[in-house]
Amino acid sequence: MEIPRHWRLNQQRYGLVGEVCPHCDTKIFPPRDICPACGQDAKTTFAFSGRGAVFSFTTIYEAPTGFDETAPYTVALVKLEEGPLVTAQLTDLGEAHPEIGMPVEMVTRRLRSDGDERGMLIYGYKFRPVLKPA
C-alpha cells in the first residue's frame, strides 16, 4: 500500500510545488533543497504555473505493472515556462498528435492504480494541450 510514500509527495503531485533559490532565483522542480545551479541551500517553496511546452515525447505500449491497463499512453518531458523540465504523461489529446513545442497545461489525473479494488489510487499531475476558447 505504501501510503506514506505517496502522501508525503502530495504538495508536488497536486500543486506542482517546487522551490526557488533565494541566492540565484533558479526555479527548481522537483524540490531538492540544494540549488542545482549555484549549489547553495534552496528551501523556499515555489508553486509553478503549470504552463509549459512539450520538449520531447513518446508512446509506451509495453507498460509496467500498475500502468498496463491504461497502455498505450504518452509520456513527455514538459518544459515549464519558469524553466525546469518535468516528466509527466500527456492526457486529453483527443485527435491531436503530440509534437515538440506543443503548448500544454497541468491537470490532475489518476496516475496509477495500486493493485486490486482495495488498492490505493495515486493522483498527480499530467499535462493536456492548452484549451482554446470556443
Partner: peptide, 21 residues
C-alpha cells in the same frame, strides 16, 4: 521512483525521449 516511474516511465521510454529530441 518519485518523479519518473510513478508517471509510467520506463528505461525504454527514457531512451525514446532522448532519441526523439
Amino acid at each position: 521512483s518519485d518523479y519518473e516511474s510513478v508517471h509510467g516511465m520506463t528505461l525504454t521510454s527514457q531512451a525514446a525521449l532522448l532519441a526523439n529530441r
